[in-house]
Amino acid sequence: MGRRAYAIVPTLDGETIGVLLVQAEATPRSRAQCSWCRDTRLPNEVVFYGAKLAGPAGRRGSTVGTLICRDFQCSANVRNDPPLPYAGYDAAAARQDRKDELVLRASSFVERVARQ
């Protein structure tokens, strides 16, 4: 059970979907980027998680996977202040954009798993 995790994610249409994720035994050989938060200054490891598809495809063993922060620090990562690339850069707006993009990417993944 040590390699299992659950992601409970609100979808874009207001539903909440829970997905059982299974961590791959192998770890990426190089520094991977999380598909959800896409933080390039990650203080944590990124690992591959797979989820069985819903419906007949899942019963046949079909899965889909993604790279995610090992301990799901994505929410904290997107709330960190982004580096300031130029004077006058709106860090608060950039932080909100990162939060919105995290919701979009996580929702898209769980909706893909739940599609039948």
Score class of each variant (00 low, 15 high):
Cys34His: 09
Arg29Asp: 14
Phe109Leu: 00
Arg41Gly: 10
Thr16Met: 12
Gly50Met: 06
Pro28Met: 07
Leu104Thr: 09
Gly65Ile: 00
Phe109Ser: 00
Ala91Cys: 10
Trp36Met: 14
Tyr49Ala: 01
Val22Thr: 15
Arg105Gln: 02
Ala24Phe: 10
Ala106Glu: 07
Leu84Asp: 12
Cys34Ala: 10
Ala114His: 07
Thr27Gly: 02
Pro83Val: 11
Glu101Asn: 13
Glu15Tyr: 07
Leu42Ala: 15
Glu101Cys: 05
Met1Gln: 09
Glu15His: 14
Arg70Met: 01
Ala91Tyr: 08
Ser62Asn: 11
Leu84Arg: 15
Met1Ala: 13
Ser30Phe: 10
Asp71Ser: 08
Ala92Tyr: 12
Asp97Gly: 10
Arg41Asn: 13
Val113Arg: 01
Gly50Tyr: 11
Gly50Ser: 14
Ala93Asn: 08
Ala51Val: 05
Gly65Phe: 00
Asp100Thr: 14
Asp97Ser: 12
Arg4Ile: 04
Arg95Gly: 03
Asp81Asn: 11
Tyr6Lys: 06
Gly88Asn: 10
Ser62Pro: 00
Arg59His: 06
Gly58Ser: 04
Arg112Trp: 02
Gly2Leu: 08
Met1Tyr: 09
Gln23Asp: 07
Thr11Met: 03
Thr11Asp: 09
Pro10Thr: 05
Ser107Lys: 06
Ile68Gly: 00
Glu111Cys: 03
Gln73Trp: 08
Glu111Gly: 00
Phe48His: 10
Lys52Gly: 05
Leu20Thr: 08
Val19Arg: 01
Val64Asn: 03
Leu21Trp: 12
Ile17Cys: 02
Gln73Cys: 13
Ala7His: 03
Tyr89Phe: 15
Asp90Val: 04
Ala26Val: 11
Ser35Arg: 09
Ala94Trp: 04
Val110Thr: 10
Val113His: 02
Cys69Ile: 06
Gly50Asn: 10
Asn77Glu: 08
Ala94Gln: 13
Gln23Asn: 05
Leu84Tyr: 04
Ala91Val: 15
Leu12Gln: 14
Glu101Pro: 01
Trp36Glu: 00
Val78Arg: 02
Asp97Phe: 09
Leu102Ala: 09
Ala114Pro: 03
Ser62Tyr: 09
Cys74His: 02
Pro83Gly: 02
Leu84Ala: 13
Tyr49Gln: 01
Gly88Met: 07
Arg105Gly: 02
Ala87His: 09
Ala26Trp: 11
Gln96Glu: 15
Arg60Gln: 14
Gly65Cys: 01
Pro10Trp: 02
Pro85Glu: 12
Pro56Tyr: 05
Arg59Phe: 05
Arg59Lys: 13
Leu12Gly: 11
Ile17Gln: 07
Val64Ser: 06
Tyr89Asn: 06
Asp97Arg: 14
Ala114Ser: 14
Ala57Gly: 04
Arg105Tyr: 02
Cys69Pro: 05
Met1Val: 10
Thr63Asp: 03
Val22Arg: 11
Gln96Trp: 07
Pro85Cys: 09
Val103Ala: 14
Glu111His: 00
Gln23Ile: 04
Ala94Ser: 14
Phe109Gln: 01
Gln33Ser: 13
Ser35Trp: 04
Leu104Trp: 09
Val9Gln: 13
Ile17His: 06
Ala57Asp: 11
Arg29Gln: 14
Glu101Ala: 15
Leu20Ser: 08
